[in-house]
Amino acid sequence: MSTASAYLTVRGFDIDVIRKDIKHLHVGVYPPAGRVRVAAPLGFDDEHIRLAVIQRLGWIRRQRKELQGAARQSLREMVTGESHYVWGLRKRLNVVERPGRAHVEVDGDRLTLYIAPNASVEQRRTYLGRWYRDQLRSALTDLISTWEQRLEVTVPKWTIRKMKTKWGSCNRETHDLWFNLELAKKHPDCLEYIVVHELTHYFDRNHGAQFAALMDRNLPDWRSRRDELNGAPLAEENWTA
């Protein structure tokens, strides 16, 4: 079966479009961030697909809301034995209560949080969230520097923040970048995909054929990285960092 991939932006939603040898158009919303994908017949043009998505916007928003609700329902209690992810690997949390400065250590499949005996659950979440932020900041510093050189661009400013529906974002006017804190829990290949994706918007504002061609040239396996990221476990915590 022949296929062709492209991107569209519809009412603020980034849409993955796959044209196939099929008879009917199908719209799907996928975890964890609510990625919208359209499978359309080969003969459908962009305007036809855009209208079909607009007609389903209510349903798309409801599906995204359910995904976000699912992530909130599994808020971690920050106790020994819980599962947490670090760079795509599942770790078992070990909480050690002791006086002194809080810190985190990773040893094999164990993630140890050293914290004061009187620290609340919220304080534990906050500290671990700060640790994730530090991990992500360090990785992003190296990745952004590498890809600035490869693409011959300069990133004026980048920021890590909690984002409900996007892994990353690019301000098309200022070229400032934002990255989702949850990326510290995903595989490093996924983080690199997001960096390249956002930097590619320096050359193309949209998600059309030219954007896909640039991604193909600079990161040939970007589609498999994207699928790995979007197929990763839903967020298990709402960090307060």
Rank of each mutant, 00 (worst) to 15 (best):
M163R: 06
A212N: 11
R150H: 15
H48V: 06
R92M: 07
E198V: 06
R72I: 01
F44A: 10
D14Y: 07
G81C: 08
E173M: 15
W178T: 05
E236K: 09
R137I: 06
M215A: 07
R19D: 05
G28M: 07
L219N: 13
D21T: 14
K186N: 08
L177N: 06
Y132W: 04
E77Q: 11
W178C: 12
A235D: 10
R217G: 06
E105V: 08
C190S: 10
W59S: 03
P32W: 05
R76K: 14
L89K: 13
R205P: 14
F44E: 13
G69K: 12
T3D: 05
W178Q: 12
F203C: 03
P99H: 12
L229W: 14
K166M: 06
L234A: 09
L93P: 10
E97R: 15
Y132I: 04
L140S: 05
G58E: 01
N230T: 01
G43F: 02
I18H: 07
R56S: 00
A52C: 02
T141V: 00
Y193V: 01
H24N: 15
A52Y: 11
V38K: 11
S74P: 07
R150N: 08
L140M: 00
Y193H: 09
Y127T: 02
S120Y: 13
D176K: 15
Y114F: 15
D45H: 09
Q55D: 08
R72N: 09
